[in-house]
Structure formats: structure tokens, C-alpha cells
Write a protein that binds this DNA or RNA. Structure first.
Length: 824
RNA sequence: GCGGAUGUGGCGGAAUUGGCAGACGCGCUAGACUUAGGAUCUAGUAUCUUACGAUGUGGGGGUUCAAGUCCCUUCAUCCGCACCA
């Protein structure tokens, strides 16, 4: 190659300076060295009592399953890992912790299958995960590690539960629960679909049981309001709002004819009250029992109830088009404004779990009611002008004029709603009401491997909390903890454990044998990291004041409704009782996209498309894994894995390694690449902050190509390049830093700064358009005026060919952007 | 059904306020070096065309000197919620 002698000469003098020929990039040796170095030097230990500004970066702590770390974890963690490393170089005191959300079914099921104790299995899994995370070179402060299954940790999970209980936010209720025949456990509505358990696929049946609930509904409004003071991705905020599902309307009481009972309904459209020609109640509605004496077709109703109970969610949705229902004979309701008697139906298109479990049907303006009315030949009345209710329900009713509606006639919809509510409140027939789709949080599992609920059932005193000084209430170490068939927890088989005395009256009593759901431990874990040894409180006030809120929380989209709402609920509650200093736990929340298999499908064992991070680390190194996982695509979107893509990133790092052989002794960045380097600092800096890791790495690749084109790099140029790449690939950059004697260790260096004025080229190439089409390019000073640009442009043959013999009608010259000449 | 998002080469994906579409990487093609190449380096790589040039960001229409970007309309895919009253 025709490289000039000067460069080769520099190169050979450098070889001597480095004590020999630069060897090939040996990722194994380098990564092992630096991981040991970081551990031995406590490099990433968070400072106590620091005067520095703090940065608290949080990633969702993993459930340590037996299959080990997944590349999805790597994508989730590497993002904030980059931010954490960058923040340290920027001078922050960084808390970037990790822990284990280790209670849960898979471990317990595995333990039962293999005849081992869940504790043992959990510890083993944690060891595997720890080893894998360390091999990736994450800068976690391992001294802050937490484990939700450690009694020292769940002592405080139980403590928080007791505070909820004492404030009336934890209660027991007898309801139908979804019992999974396979897992032998009660499931939340969200834990199964189409009548099949999400986890094991077994059939889910209804079972009546006493279960614990947390009153998260009390916080529905607060959970919505709080979204205004935090910075969540729009789609995350939206999902939370949808999940909470607020709707404003009214409760209306319908009298039962000839009876002093009333039927209460919730409606968002009280204005349509004059159009309510029948009523529908959910199959489980208690009214049936209350009016049993008057009802003349009880057998038919009971029959329908049974059928409805057996219907799976799937069937209910599938058959949605074909409305079913039964008229309740012998009982009529009275429309409170028309005073006419209207029939009541039992139908499963009305859900007991929402509103009052009963509706007033307005067939003229609701599709479901219209279908039902047609099927049962019920009157359909138009109350809002605009459609033809004999043909279809008219539902375009956000505005419109009221008709057939007595005192509401001629009013606009908005005013009619207001007036109806006024009327109802005056007549004591109803009131303005807000409803939420979100249900209270079913807070229990009938399994062994979870936090015991610290409540004692006393025949005399009722439910009594375990005294706080007796916490933690530890799980007993037992031989058998297999689930029972009757829906009771395995703890109910251990009299030595559940038999106790009442802390109030001293009489014989029994412990609650249910355990907490897996969501419990993760609802407050971020409060524990920075004070994980504290035995007096879940965390000290002083440390909370310094560290809260979490500055940046990244995790999966699958956790943005339940986990995020549950933990915000606990935090808001703790704020209310004066235990935490901030109203919201997380200042900012982002989410990564899925990593798919190389076939574009979701990774799964059965498809055989799972990528094991260990294999990538062995073959290419942790730095390659980290670089590729960030380079793979838009961070928020899903992207398919590609082995070749990973290989490409390894090639990039190989070329980075070779930069060491190209260093010149010129001071500064050198004239040719100065602008390029300043531009790159700016871009990489901004892109990291916006989680645009793919384009940040692309910019570094581009700069590397520039270096190679020059065949030379100044020491300052290399230094900046290494610093920019460090958060992504810390091992190779640390090694180069040390090799090149750049001063101290890279972990303690300062993040590079750019000079805005040097990010702009003085002389640029500009496209010249004729009638909007590019016909050539000109080189000119960035701040040249129109005259200069025209002169240069018209000197070009190409341009001249298009302008000659024509009139220049218009010139659009945007300095630094474009020069467009319109000719005729 | 409701709500949200996304459609750009063979593939993953880039493109501040409208300003040279396809950065960067993969793959592919050719060449160099080599005992060898599934290593490395160099050059090329949207489509059509011999070329000049024309076409091109899901489809159709519009605004503009100029549209991936703005407006209207339509289609497709993905995600969330789902008989929510």
C-alpha cells in the first residue's frame, strides 16, 4: 500500500514505545483482567455521604430462573449501564444496583419436581445469574444487592403490608376466584386467558374463597394525577391510563315496581335516561336472590347463571355478536323520569365487576343494547337527533340535540347531562359518579414460596396483625410444601407453624396461611438498594432524601401496567403515612423492545431460536455482545437477532484495537478531523441520552472509518474516541487506555466536551437544484451569500446546460442547505 | 369494537425546523494478500437504462421552489384494552 514513509516511521517508533508489536485483540484475556480489576478495586462502589450530585439508575431486577440470563435481559440492562458509566465520568455519584425478585412459582415447581428446597434452588439460580451478569462487565454496585426472599428483606415487605392493613387498605373478601388446576393456585384475572393458565396452560375454574385485596382503587385518581409530574414514555403513560380506565358519569336508582328495593346502575350518559326502555343485570347480580319471592321463572334464571359461570372468557368474547339473556318474570323496574314500567333482563354482556353490575339499556344509542332490543323485541326510542334508530343504534352522540326527553328536549347533549344529574341529585335518585376499570389488587397466593401474610386469625379478636417486633414472620423450613387440591396453601398443612396465640387476648389462634403474590417484593425494592443492611427501617430517611426519586427506570413494556401501578400505589401510600419523601417513585421510565430470534419470531425454547449470551461472550466477547445489542436497531422497537450482525460489531472492535498502531505525535485533534471529532462527541453524547444507541455507535463507526482513511490518529483523537466508546465497550477501551498511557484509569476519566463552534464545517458541499432537481454540487463557504453561490453555480457546466437560454424566474438559496434555481 | 404505533434497498435500520433519501452495519459482487480463507484489506452495491437520463420512502390525491417529513384519503402490519355501560 502506498502509505507514505512518515506514517510507517511513526508506527515503528510507537512499537518501541509500547514494548513490542501490538498483538491481536484477545477479548478473553482483556475482559477477565478488567472484571477482576473492577471487583478488586470496588470501582463501582456508590459513595456514602457524597457531596456529588446523585444519579439513581434502575433496571428491573430479574427473576432468577433456572434457564439463566436471556439476551432480552442484556438489552434491558445495557442501556442504563451506558448511562451509568457515562454519569460517573460526568462526575455524578451513581447508584446502579441489581438484585433478585426470587419468590415465585417456577422455582417452587422446579423444586417440587426435583425434590429439593426452593431456597437451595434459588441460591443456585442467583449464582448462575450473578456469574453471567459479571461476565458482561456491568458496573453494578454488588454491595447493594438485594434478594426478595431474604427474611431481612421480606421483613419490610411484611411491614409495609401491615401498614396497609392498619390503614384499612388490605381487606379480605369472599369471592369467586380463578383456580388453576395445574398450578393449584388462585390466579388474578390478568394471569390467565381464554380459560387457560398463562403459566402452565391448564384449565382455570371458578372457586369460592376468602381472598386478600389491596384497595388500589382508592388511589386510582392519584395514580392518574401523578402521571403529570413524571416523565414516562407516552405509550407507557397511555397504557397506565387505559388500565385505570376512568370514566365519568352518574349512578341512577331505578325503583322496583311494587317493592321498596332499588336497582342502581352506572351510566356515562345520564342524558339518555328517557331512552332507557329496559334494564340488564349481570348473571351474578344479588338482586336475583333479594327478589327471589317475586320472581316467577327462577329455574330459568338459575339455569342461565350456571351456563354463564361455565363460559370461558373466550366464549364470552366470541359470542359477543350474538347476545343472550333471560327476562326476569314477575318483576319490573320503573324509569325514574318517564315513570313507565320496564322489564329487567339477566345477560352476560353485563359484567358484575364493573360499575354496579347493572345497566339501563338505551337501545337507540348503544349497539349492544340495540342488538339485544331487536332480539327480544323491545321498544327503541330516539332521544338524540341525527340517526335512524329503526335501522341501527345512533352512536355519534358526543354532541346533538335531545328529543323525546321531557324536560331535556331541545338541549345540547352536554347541557342535558348536566341537567339530568342536577335533577337526579335534587330528587335523590342518583348522583354524579366516577368509575374505574381497574380492580382492587388480589393479594395472595396459596403457595409456599412467597412472603407469609403477617396476620393472625383469632376467634375472639378477629384479624390481628403480627406485632411488628416479631417480623419477619419467616417461612418454616419443611420437607413437604406441595400445593393442596382444595385451594389452600401448603402452610395450612403445618400445624406447628400456623397454630399460635393471639397477640391481643393471648388465646389460641391461627396464622394466615396464604402468602403474598410475586408482585409484592418488587413493589418497593428500589427503596432498599441504598440502605440494604438497615435493620431499623426499610431505609433511612437521610438516604431516601438523597437518593429518591429514581432518576431513570428502564424495563419491559410487559410491566408498565401492573408492576408499575402497584409500586406507584405502595409508594404513594408510604408517602401519605410519612415514610418516603417523594410522591412518585420514578422520575423517568423508559422501555426496551423485544429481541426476537433470527427467524423473526419471539425467542422460545420450543422454537429453538434462543440465543445464549454466554456463547456470544465466548466467541466474540462481552464488549461485542454489548455493542451489538445496542446497535441492533431502534431501542424501543423489537428487532431480530443476527449472528452476522454480532460478527460485524466484533470486526468494528478489531479495528478499534488496531487504532493503537496508527497514533501520531501531533498535538490536538489535527486539522483534518477536528470538526468530525467535535461533531461525533455532540452526536454520541445526545444519542446516548435519548437511547439512540444504534446511531451513536454508527457515528463512532463513521469516525473510525475517517481515522482509517487518514491512516493516522492523534493521541487526543484516540483518547476522545475511547472515552465515547467506553460506556458501550468498557473492557477494550480500558485496555487501550492503559496501553497508551492516557493517565490514570479510564473509569476515573472525564467525559469529553465538544466546542459547538467547531461542530460546523467552514466550507461545505451544497446541492444545486434546477426546478427542484439536483443537477450538481458546489463547494462554498458555509456563510456565502446568494451572489457568491450563483456565481459558483453558474460556472459549472452541468448547471449552465440547464440554465442557458432560459429565464431565471426565482432563486431559493438557504445558506448551508440548498440552492434551487427555478428557470422557465 | 375502542385506543396507540409503524410501513423506507436483499436484511437490520439512518435522515433537527420540509432542503442531495438510503448514514452505519449485515449480505452480496469484484479485486489484492495468502498454502488456504467462512481471516484481513481495497473498490462497488435502491430500481430501470449501453449511456444521457428516468423512477423511487405501502397505494391514491393535494400544498410547496422543494415532501420520507405537512394536509386529505385509502390499504396493510404490530401492540394495548376489550360486551367497561
Amino acid at each position: 500500500m502506498g502509505t507514505d514513509f512518515f506514517v510507517l516511521n511513526k508506527f515503528s517508533s510507537l512499537k518501541r514505545a509500547n514494548g513490542g508489536n501490538m498483538s491481536a485483540y484477545d477479548h478473553k484475556k482483556i475482559e477477565e483482567y478488567w472484571q477482576k480489576y473492577w471487583e478488586a478495586n470496588d470501582t463501582f462502589r456508590t459513595e456514602d455521604n457524597s457531596k456529588k450530585e446523585k444519579f439513581y439508575g434502575l433496571v428491573e431486577f430479574p427473576y432468577p430462573s433456572g434457564v439463566g440470563l436471556h439476551v432480552g435481559h442484556v438489552r434491558a440492562y445495557t442501556s442504563l449501564e451506558v448511562i451509568a458509566r457515562k454519569r460517573r465520568l460526568e462526575g455524578f455519584n451513581v447508584l446502579f444496583p441489581i438484585g433478585w425478585d426470587a419468590f415465585g412459582l417456577p422455582t417452587e415447581n422446579y423444586a417440587i419436581k426435583t425434590g429439593r428446597h426452593p431456597r437451595e434452588v434459588t441460591d443456585e439460580n442467583i449464582a448462575v445469574f450473578t456469574d453471567q451478569l459479571k461476565r458482561i462487565g456491568y458496573s453494578f454496585d454488588w454491595s447493594k444487592e438485594i434478594d426478595t426472599t431474604d427474611p431481612k428483606y421480606y421483613k419490610w415487605t411484611q411491614w409495609i403490608f401491615l401498614q396497609l392493613f392498619k390503614h384499612g387498605l388490605a381487606f379480605r373478601d369472599r369471592t369467586y376466584v380463578n383456580f388453576c388446576n395445574g398450578c393449584k393456585v388462585v390466579l388474578a384475572n390478568e394471569d390467565f386467558r381464554d380459560g387457560k393458565c398463562d403459566r402452565c396452560g391448564s384449565e382455570v375454574v371458578q372457586m369460592e374463597k376468602d381472598v386478600w385485596f389491596l384497595k388500589i382503587r382508592n388511589y386510582a385518581e392519584r395514580l392518574l394525577d401523578g402521571l403529570d409530574e413524571v416523565d414516562y414514555l407516552p405509550r407507557i403513560r397511555l397504557e397506565q391510563e387505559n388500565w385505570i380506565g376512568k370514566s365519568v358519569g352518574a349512578e341512577v336508582e331505578f325503583a322496583i315496581a311494587g317493592h321498596d328495593k332499588v336497582l342502581r346502575v352506572f351510566t356515562t350518559r345520564p342524558d339518555t335516561l328517557f331512552g332507557a326502555t329496559f334494564m340488564v343485570i349481570a348473571p351474578e347480580h344479588p338482586l336475583i336472590q333479594e327478589l327471589a319471592e317475586e320472581i316467577t321463572n327462577m329455574n330459568e334464571l338459575v339455569d342461565y347463571q350456571d351456563k354463564a359461570k361455565r363460559k370461558t372468557e373466550f366464549e364470552r368474547v366470541q359470542l359477543a355478536k350474538d347476545k343472550t339473556g333471560v327476562r326476569i318474570q314477575g318483576v319490573q323496574a320503573i324509569n325514574p323520569v318517564t315513570h313507565t314500567e320496564i322489564p329487567i333482563f339477566l345477560a352476560d354482556y353485563v359484567m358484575m365487576g364493573y360499575g354496579t353490575g347493572a345497566i339501563m339499556a338505551v337501545p337507540g344509542h348503544d349497539n349492544r343494547d340495540w342488538e339485544f332490543a331487536k332480539k327480544f323485541d323491545l321498544p327503541i326510542i330516539e332521544v338524540i337527533k341525527g340517526g335512524d334508530v329503526t335501522e341501527a343504534a345512533y352512536t355519534n352522540t358526543d354532541s346533538g340535540e335531545m328529543v323525546n326527553s321531557g324536560f331535556l328536549n331541545c338541549l345540547e347533549v352536554k347541557d342535558a347531562i348536566k341537567k339530568t344529574i342536577e335533577y337526579l341529585e335534587k330528587e335523590n335518585l342518583g348522583k354524579k359518579t366516577i368509575n374505574y376499570k381497574m380492580k382492587d389488587w388480589a393479594f395472595n397466593r396459596q403457595r409456599y414460596w412467597g412472603e407469609p401474610i403477617p396476620i393472625i386469625h383469632c376467634p375472639k379478636c378477629g384479624m390481628v396483625p403480627v406485632p411488628e417486633n416479631e417480623l419477619p414472620l419467616e417461612l418454616p423450613i419443611v420437607e413437604s410444601y406441595e400445593p393442596t387440591d382444595n385451594g389452600k396453601s401448603p402452610l395450612a398443612n403445618i400445624p406447628e407453624w400456623y397454630e399460635t396465640t393471639c397477640p391481643v387476648c393471648g388465646g389460641p389462634a391461627e396464622r394466615e396461611t396464604d402468602t403474598m403474590p410475586q408482585w409484592a417484593g418488587s413493589s418497593w425494592y428500589f427503596l432498599r438498594y441504598f440502605d440494604n443492611e438497615n435493620d431499623e427501617a426499610f431505609a433511612s430517611e437521610e438516604k431516601m432524601k438523597y437518593w429518591l426519586p429514581v432518576d431513570w427506570y428502564n424495563g419491559g413494556m410487559e410491566h408498565v401496567t401492573r408492576h408499575l401501578l402497584y409500586s406507584r400505589f405502595w409508594h404513594q401510600f408510604l408517602y401519605d403515612i410519612g415514610c418516603v419523601p417523594t410522591r412518585e417513585p420514578y422520575a423517568k421510565r423508559t422501555a426496551q423492545g423485544l429481541i426476537l430470534g433470527n427467524d423473526g419470531d419471539k425467542m422460545s425454547k420450543s422454537k429453538g431460536n434462543v440465543v445464549n449470551p454466554n456463547e456470544i461472550i465466548d466467541a466474540f466477547g462481552a464488549d461485542t455482545l454489548r455493542t451489538y445489542i445496542l446497535f441492533i436497531g431502534d431501542y424501543e422497537k423489537s428487532a431480530p437477532w443476527s449472528d452476522n450482525g454480532a460478527k460485524g460489531c466484533r470486526r468494528f472492535l478489531d479495528r478499534v484495537w488496531k487504532l493503537q498502531d496508527m497514533v501520531s505525535e501531533e498535538e490536538g485533534y489535527g486539522k483534518v478531523l477536528e470538526t468530525a471529532i467535535h461533531k461525533t462527541i455532540k452526536k454520541v453524547n445526545n444519542d446516548y441520552e435519548e437511547m439512540k444507541y444504534n446511531t451513536a455507535i454508527a457515528a463512532l463507526m463513521t469516525l473510525l472509518n475517517d481515522f482509517n482513511k487518514e491512516g493516522i490518529i492523534t493521541k487526543a483523537g484516540l483518547k476522545t474516541f475511547i472515552l465515547l466508546l467506553y460506556p458501550v465497550a468498557p473492557h477494550i477501551t480500558s485496555e487501550i487506555w492503559q496501553n497508551m498511557k492516557m493517565g490514570g484509569t479510564l473509569d476515573e476519566a472525564a467525559w469529553p466536551q465538544y466546542d459547538e463552534s467547531k461542530t460546523v464545517d467552514n466550507v461545505i458541499e451544497m446541492a444545486v437544484q434546477i426546478n427542484g432537481k439536483v443537477r450538481g454540487t458546489i463547494t462554498l463557504p458555509v456563510d456565502a451569500d446568494t451572489e457568491t453561490a450563483r456565481e459558483i453555480a453558474l460556472n459549472q457546466e452541468n448547471i449552465l446546460a440547464y440554465t442557458q437560454g432560459k429565464n431565471i424566474v426565482k432563486e431559493i438559496y438557504v445558506p448551508g442547505k440548498i440552492f434551487n434555481i427555478v428557470v422557465k
